[in-house]
Design a protein around this nucleic acid. Structure first.
Lengths: 207, 207
DNA sequence: GTGATTATCTTTACGACGTCAAGATTTATT
DNA sequence: AATAAATCTTGACGTCGTAAAGATAATCAC
C-alpha cells in the first residue's frame, strides 16, 4: 500500500480532499461570513479545481449539510463539556451551564452557528444533519426534564412551554449577541458578560 | 403638467419605480425566500431592465436597506397596535402583548424579518434603517421600564439583564418558529399557539 | 504482475448573477 | 426652443454554481 499521507500535496489525487474541503469551508465561512461564502473559494483554498468538490459532496448543499452536521456534533460536545465542568447536580445550575455552552459555541463559531440555525442552504432532511440536530435538541429536553421533574416534558403542555421558553432565551441571546444587536451588553469584561448571560438564562428557572 | 399616474405603464419612464421596486422586492423575498433573492428578478417583476434599480438605490444593498427600514417601521406599528388592542394598563400584560406582536410580525413576514434581524446584506449604518431599528428597540426598553418601575433600565445592570432576557425570549421564539425548528409547538390551532406564546413570554415577568 | 475498471481531479462550457459604462428617451429648466 | 437633468435600456465584464467530457491515479480481477 503506497497510499500517501492524507494531507500530502503535489499529487494529482489529494488524499483526503473531503476533509480538506470541510476545513476550508469553515475557514471561508469564518473569514468571509456566511453570506460571502462561495464554493469556488473553498476549492481554491483546498488547492483543487473549482469542480473538484462535486465528486465528494455533489453540490454546495451537500458540502454545507455535512459542515452543519459536524457543527451540531461539536455543539453537543461544547454544551456537554460545560455542564460537566459545572460540577453540580442542581438541575437549574446545569441548565444554566448548558445555556452558557450554547452561547459560547455561537460566539466562537458565528458563521457556523448561522449556517446551522438560520440558513436554508443545508439540506435539513439530510440524515446525518437531522440526527445531529436531534441529539442536541434531546439534550435540551433532558435538561428541562431534570429541572421540572418530568420524564418527558414534550408530553405535557406545561413541559412544552418550558422547553420552548428555555430554548428561545438561549437561542435568542446567542443570535442577538453574534449579530451585534445587543450593544448594551458589549464593552464589558468577559467575566462580567458571562455573569450577565448566566443571570439572563436564569430567568427561566421554575418559580 | 402631464405627469402620468404613478403606477401607469407603457411609457419609457415608470413614474414611481422606487416604490414599485420595493413592492417587487418584498414579493420576491416572500416567494423565493431570503437566500433566493436576486436584483434582476425584482427588476423584471417591476417591468424594467436589470440595471434600472441602480438609479434609485445604487446597488442591492441600497434596496435591501430601504426595505429593511420599512420593515422596522411596519414592525413598530404591529407591536404598538397589539399593545393598544390589549386594552390594559398592566405593564406585564402590555409586555406580553408586545411580544405577541413581535412574533406575529415575524410569522407574517418571515423573509422580511430575516432580512431585518439576520442579514448583513442591508447596510445597518444606513440612517433611516438605524433610526427605525432604534425606535423599535426603544419601545422594548420602554416596556421593560414599566415592568420593573425603572426610568431607564439600560442604566442599571439588573435593568440591562431584564431587557436582554425579554428581547432574547421574544426574538428567539420568533426565530425558531419561523425557521420551523419548534416542531413540538406546531400542529395545534392558532388560538392554542397564541396561548402558548403568551405563556412562554410570561416567563420573563419579575418574581 | 498486468490489463481493466473505478475513483478522483481538471478543463471547458453554460446560463445567471451584480455591477458598471455608454447610449437612448423623457422630463425639467432656463 | 434650447439646454440640462433625470430616468431607463443596452451591452459588457468578471464571478458564481453546475454539468459534461477528458486526464490521471488507485484499485481490482485474474
Amino acid at each position: 500500500m503506497t497510499r500517501k499521507k492524507a494531507t500530502e500535496r503535489g499529487s494529482y489525487h489529494h488524499g483526503d480532499l473531503r476533509r480538506a474541503l470541510l476545513v476550508a469551508a469553515e475557514q471561508e465561512l469564518t473569514e468571509k461570513g456566511f453570506e460571502g461564502f462561495t464554493l469556488r473559494s473553498c476549492a481554491k483554498r483546498a488547492g483543487v479545481s473549482h469542480a473538484a468538490p462535486a465528486h465528494h459532496f455533489g453540490d454546495m448543499t451537500g458540502l454545507l449539510s455535512a459542515l452543519a452536521a459536524e457543527g451540531f456534533e461539536r455543539f453537543l460536545k461544547v454544551t456537554t463539556a460545560r455542564v460537566e465542568k459545572a460540577g453540580t447536580d442542581d438541575p437549574d445550575a446545569r441548565m444554566i451551564a448548558m445555556g452558557l455552552g450554547y452561547v459560547e459555541f455561537a460566539r466562537a463559531n458565528p458563521a457556523l452557528f448561522t449556517l446551522m440555525f438560520s440558513s436554508k442552504k443545508p439540506d435539513h432532511d439530510d440524515e446525518r444533519l437531522r440526527q445531529a440536530g436531534t441529539a442536541a435538541f434531546a439534550q435540551l429536553v433532558g435538561g428541562v426534564a431534570a429541572m421540572i421533574g418530568s420524564e418527558d416534558p414534550l408530553s405535557s403542555r406545561e413541559g412544552r412551554r418550558r422547553v420552548a421558553a428555555t430554548w428561545a432565551i438561549v437561542h435568542g441571546l446567542s443570535h442577538l449577541l453574534l449579530s451585534q444587536q445587543m450593544k448594551f451588553l458589549e464593552g464589558q469584561s468577559e467575566e462580567e458578560l458571562q455573569a450577565d448571560i448566566a443571570a439572563i438564562i436564569g430567568v427561566i428557572r421554575p418559580r
